[in-house]
Amino acid sequence: MPMSYYLILSAAMFAIGVLGVILRRNPLVVFMSLELMFNAANLVFVAFSAYHQILDGDLFVFFVMTTAAAEVAVGLALMVAIFRAKRTIDLDEMSMLKG
């Protein structure tokens, strides 16, 4: 398959992720959109790793997954904590801090 297919797919994933982050109000969905963005990048890494015939990109994906996991841990913990305190995690309900 030509590289452009992977690039287009990953760009689409990234764009959907960005839109999700911007438009959605549920932090869990936002969170998933973020993961989508990360994985769009992962796709680029893997695709180019194959294209350039080097392993660096594949390796990088490992690290990205690990950091993503660390972020998941922090993010979920935060959301649980907020949900338990406020019984909602809707971002629109977050109005304590005036912007």
Partner: peptide, 15 residues
Amino acid sequence: FSSAFVLYGIALIFG
């Protein structure tokens, strides 16, 4: 969100 931008940029540069 910003990390994702950086990461995607890195991916493209790697490409």
